[in-house]
Design a binder for these strands. Structure first.
Lengths: 167, 167
DNA sequence: GCTAAGTAGCTTACTGCTAAGCTAATTATA
DNA sequence: TATAATTAGCTTAGCAGTAAGCTACTTAGC
């Protein structure tokens, strides 16, 4: 009952390398080539869904992070920068746009006059709640086309690979 | 003998969402969250390795595509643009840099006066051969830390997921 | 208390990308 | 043949990111 495994774009690339460079051991290329393509394709699809709400994927990451941090939906730019692995300049730009859109506010941190507190506005919270559902729907739509034992097994293997890669 | 599965960054994000929004079905978020992080981490690692050769990952993609296309290592900008899913402007920039570095040449296509032929130079071919080995080494180093049945199984599941995502 | 080092956030210069529009050449149609 | 539509590649403007350096403030050591 497994679907027939037909040749995909990554197989073709690997066949070309195997013809030109038969000395290469290409298994790793297959695994990570597929990871890159899945990430790119799903990223593009999510970006499209987010654009319907008027903000980018990166901007959603910010309001999503504030939303899931829980009441009172406040974090410092520094915390956001390190959670989202961005430079401070990039974060300043995102916060500028989100503030202009009325989704977050900047206010001084009473305990540290160097620092700011970023707070999700009511509109920002509502938008984050709507958008997390929309983004998740895109992901579920794709994933549900795999049968269940495969889904669960895939998640476990990806967890192992991430542990290896992040260490 | 399986390593103990400890909580990772994706688990923590999902726990936050589950606390704030218990209505969400988060399995898909786990799978794609890990795919995104693996892609980002490995991409950064490869970029670093490529930088040692003086060119970027995107530029390597171009000379790698020419190299694996086989003798006479020639493709048109149009073919490269569609293979690498780039806009024409982006490809023009990459070719400018590669030409300046002496890794490719631009020459007129004798059969179509609108078109160009991009040819890998001898130095370009040598560099591509060296770099594909270096990039692959990074990938193998990570992947080999998974035991073999897992590696093969993971590749099969990723192939299934890519087929679903690319359709 | 002073001073040196570190930290938070912003600004600037630069890079690489996309999107839109251009020219020149080719192809299809009347 | 004339003309309309398409295609290849380039150029330009604009955007989002990084890296480096700035100011203002805080912390640690003497």
């Amino acid at each position: 009952m497994r679907p027939v495994q037909t040749e995909d774009a990554v197989d073709r690339i690997i066949q070309q390398w195997a013809r030109e460079r038969p000395d290469l051991e290409t298994e790793a290329m297959a695994v990570f080539g597929r990871v890159y393509r899945i990430a790119a394709a799903m990223g593009a699809r999510q970006q499209e869904a987010y654009a319907a709400f008027g903000i980018s994927r990166g901007e959603f990451d910010v309001i999503g992070t504030l939303r899931r941090s829980g009441e009172p939906f406040q974090l410092s730019p520094k915390e956001l920068t390190s959670m989202l692995m961005l430079t401070s300049g990039g974060m300043t730009g995102r916060l500028d746009r989100l503030e202009r859109a009325g989704l977050v506010t900047r206010s001084p941190d009473p305990g540290d006059r160097r620092a700011l507190v970023i707070t999700l506005t009511e509109r920002g919270r509502e938008l984050a709640d709507e958008m997390v559902g929309a983004g998740l729907a895109i992901q579920r739509e794709a994933l549900e086309r795999l049968p269940e034992p495969a889904r669960h097994h895939l998640n476990g293997l990806l967890r192992e690979l991430l542990a290896v890669v992040d260490s």
